[in-house]
């Protein structure tokens, strides 16, 4: 068995694309699945945004005391 591959030989893609569109192989989401995924993605983005704002505001409120954590 030889491991060499000619440079001009076209290599097949190692894996099918994970999310393929028209004319490709792979998982194709239904309309309902796409809408659900989009809604979940927006919810995650909003939650992370709220978390960042929360940390920012609490840092402003506490000032240097934000680093003081007595047990």
């Amino acid at each position: 068995m030889t491991m060499s591959v000619a440079m001009n030989e076209e290599k097949p893609p190692p894996f099918p694309p994970p999310l393929a569109g028209e004319g490709r192989v792979g998982v194709r989401l239904t309309e309902r699945q796409q809408r659900a995924r989009r809604a979940r993605s927006i919810a995650i983005a909003v939650s992370l945004g709220v978390l960042v704002i929360l940390f920012y505001i609490v840092t402003l409120v506490k000032g240097p005391g934000v680093l003081v954590r007595p047990l």
């Binding site: 998982v27 239904t30 309902r32 699945q33 659900a36 995924r37 809604a39 979940r40 919810a43």
Partner: peptide, 11 residues
Amino acid sequence: VEPSIAGVGDY
């Protein structure tokens, strides 16, 4: 494994 259909309301 089917892609999820869970909406935000379900969570």
